[in-house]
Design a protein around this nucleic acid. Structure first.
Lengths: 357, 357
DNA sequence: GTGAAAGCGCTAACAG
DNA sequence: CTGTTAGCGCTTTCAC
């Protein structure tokens, strides 16, 4: 430091404090041009080693950071990804699904040097206000959109803006849309088939909303499994839930009248509510009614008995979605793709598999 | 539309499709200069009404949106707020607190026209990678930081960068730092005092981590209430939890040996775990052991018996934090302030108040 | 009221 | 290897 004249030190101090340094300033302090500093900041080759060192030291001592807006303007890349959770997603703060998904997305963003913009839509007005912010060029490099209600207009509008976009879950119209999903139909099939093989005769279902593709697909898997096992579909054994605990409880009370001996629930959280209703009716799980759920996420309270369920890796789901989107951003010319993640049936006590043996 | 020559229509089509319109393009199409379009976009006065109309129509028909990066560069405002959740916040996806907080923050951002950048830090490496992104000028107008472990280095580094920042919760060193909080000491006091007034003699506590200010403050309220009621502090009745259900369960098992007749839990979620332990020990709530919790957030499963607890409005907490931050952004010269939100003791069945009467 | 011109801070040719 | 230069798309004086 002894080499620097006092006036430069003074300048450095000024600059450090108000922290409004530009490349030009740093260049001046390091005795190089703004281009060279830029090269150093962006790890370009072709900078002499001792110059690079000197610049790096100046950058460090001044606390200089690249101005993101200026960089974004010239590179046409914001390094920001938008995550949109539509307003019909009510269960945001009761079902661990969304927090877990966001964790996966956030971790991927961190690792891949993207910033994560979160858009929680809670009303029609929000939607209108937010739309320009997500579709405005220059602020987002791509969009992750949680699939929700079928015929979602926002999804169509966004798809029209031909920005890189990946839908999380199956969109209703999947023509020419990139999405990542699990095979809900076969996963549900697998779960219900397991109950059939265990010998249950009256297998009921608490489905998700029939206005969502998840709800539709998981129900389809249930129906398919029954048909495959030559069972009749009994509508009195089926009730439409809303992916909440309270919904599961309420729907189970309805189904109880039809005397089921097993239940497939389209989510663990609904299964918990349903089990509560069963217990209140004085019945035993799994002896009187067996249970299979869907999700296998850690709920805030342990379930008793432990729930047999379809495991999906929500964290990886979010992570992969980000990788998929970045891939799209880097090469937008690719034809649309669908990524299907694996699921697995985890057998625990609630299905009665252990008792039967 | 009949007035426009074919070549203009063609141009409009081109521009609409590749959607890379600039102010200049829109101006050309509307027959005005870029400045006028800018004025219209920003709702400036001094634009003739018919010109404004014409421009607005062109904007609409072309689907033009302002380029955020360019605007941010010139105005030095990104209209983006950063929310930082430090890595030691483990309970992100089991405790409803964080999702709820984020909901409040997101709603405020939507209403006040800000974009929300979410930074979930899960490792030391994340912290290093993220730090430049949050402190880099030009990308964030301000920061919301969830207070966590005492002596958090990130908080100190960020405070040093003198960007507008609001800490959610009490920071360890509160000198010259803006924060929003609830009065944890008095809230806990109120809860424990309630138990004292109900006549309980051996009141235990499951505290939060002693490395967090929430943990420390709520414990202090507990101690203060006991002293105020002329009780001795019995360390065997106190155990340090971690704000998880499993932690509450485990700590309760320890305290059980000391034969408490009431428990103050520093969070509802821990109370749920503790109640599970009590039930497993064959004891009745509230007859054998009464409970008071803290938070009053909707848990995924209803608590039985309903929990007497300190209510805090987490959604409003998040909302207010955003308003506070924006206030700071708009006038950075203000001296540091602290906002303290109200809490309220909600009496339900778990404390035995109803039985006693 | 409206347009021309300057410039926000950066990257990326293009020279040298 | 390094500096000069030309914009990226926008807002904002300053003239008229």
């Amino acid at each position: 430091m002894g080499a620097l004249p006092e006036i430069v030190l003074q300048k450095m101090n000024d600059l450090t404090n108000n922290s409004k340094l530009t490349l030009e300033d740093v260049g001046r302090l390091a005795g190089v041009s703004r281009s060279t500093v830029s090269r150093v900041m962006n790890n370009h080759p072709y900078v002499r080693e001792n110059v690079r060192k000197r610049v790096q030291e100046t950058v460090k001592s001044t606390g200089y950071h690249t101005n993101a807006a200026a960089r974004a303007l010239v590179t046409q890349r914001s390094w920001t990804l938008g995550v949109v959770l539509p307003r019909t997603v009510h269960s945001f703060f009761t079902d661990p699904y969304f927090p877990r998904l966001i964790q996966g997305i956030a971790q991927a963003c961190n690792q891949l040097n993207y910033t994560l913009g979160l858009f929680l839509i809670s009303s029609k007005e929000d939607e209108e206000k937010i739309f320009p912010r997500i579709s405005r060029r220059g602020s987002l490099d791509g969009i992750l959109f949680q699939s929700d209600q079928i015929g979602d207009q926002l999804i169509e509008r966004l798809a029209g803006s031909n920005e890189p976009m990946v839908i999380i879950g199956r969109p209703f119209h999947d023509d020419n849309i990139n999405y990542i999903n699990i095979d809900n139909i076969n996963s549900a099939f697998m779960a219900v088939d397991h109950l059939i093989k265990l010998g249950y005769k009256r297998i009921g279902a608490i489905t998700g909303p029939s206005t969502t593709t998840v709800g539709i697909d998981r129900k389809e898997g249930y129906v398919k499994a029954l048909k495959n096992g030559s069972r009749l579909i009994d509508e009195s054994l089926i009730a439409e839930g809303d992916f909440t605990e309270a919904g599961g409880y309420k729907q189970m009370q309805k189904i109880l009248a039809a005397k089921p001996d097993a239940i497939f629930s389209a989510s663990d959280l609904m299964a918990v509510g349903a089990m509560r209703a069963v217990r209140e009716a004085g019945l035993n799980i799994p002896r009187d009614i067996a249970f299979v759920g869907f999700d296998d996420l850690p709920l805030s309270t342990p379930v008793d008995p432990p729930l047999t369920t379809v495991h999906q890796s929500v964290f990886e789901f979010g992570f992969k979605a980000v990788e998929f989107l970045i891939d799209l951003i880097e090469d937008g010319s690719k034809p649309s793709r669908h990524i299907i993640m694996d699921t697995e049936l985890i057998i625990r006590k609630s299905c009665g598999a252990y008792q039967k043996r």
